[in-house]
């Protein structure tokens, strides 16, 4: 369940899940495989690195039953991700899309030279 206090915006969505940003708590929510998990910004990117580092070909080649699944337990979350190959690929797609949107948002903000709401703005005079 997503925190009821959260003020969240959609970052990226696929058929298999979604990533939301909570601008109140400054975190990302991952909605995937029937559960939602909150990540701090750096934890989110570390989690993505872990998912990207899963050796898919080793999972395919290895015929033992334990190799059908990979387990990722991100720090500071109550969640334990048990992923088969399909789930790894779906999660990768979702996280890659989310990362792209997050970075795009930074670039857009920079290009528009958006001043953060609470930052000091110089007074403009109207003529």
């Amino acid at each position: 369940m997503i925190c009821p206090l959260a003020h969240f915006e959609e970052v990226y969505k696929t058929d298999h899940g979604a990533v939301y940003q909570c601008s109140r708590q400054n975190c990302y929510w991952l909605d995937f495989a029937g559960g939602t998990t909150a990540f701090k910004v750096s934890d989110f990117f570390n989690f993505k690195k872990k998912v990207d580092a899963v050796d898919i070909s080793a999972m395919i080649i290895d015929s033992s039953r334990t190799a059908d699944f990979t387990i990722i337990m991100p720090f500071r979350t109550p969640r334990c991700f048990v992923l088969d190959i399909n789930a790894v690929l779906n999660l990768r797609e979702l996280l890659a899309g989310a990362k792209f949107m997050i970075e795009l948002n930074s670039v857009v903000n920079e290009c528009l030279n958006v001043t953060p709401d609470r930052a000091f703005r110089p007074q403009t005079t109207n003529h």
Binding site: E9, S23, N105, S106
Partner: peptide
């Protein structure tokens, strides 16, 4: 959208 990445 608030830029969490640059805040971090």
């Amino acid at each position: 959208m608030k830029d969490l990445l640059r805040l971090k």
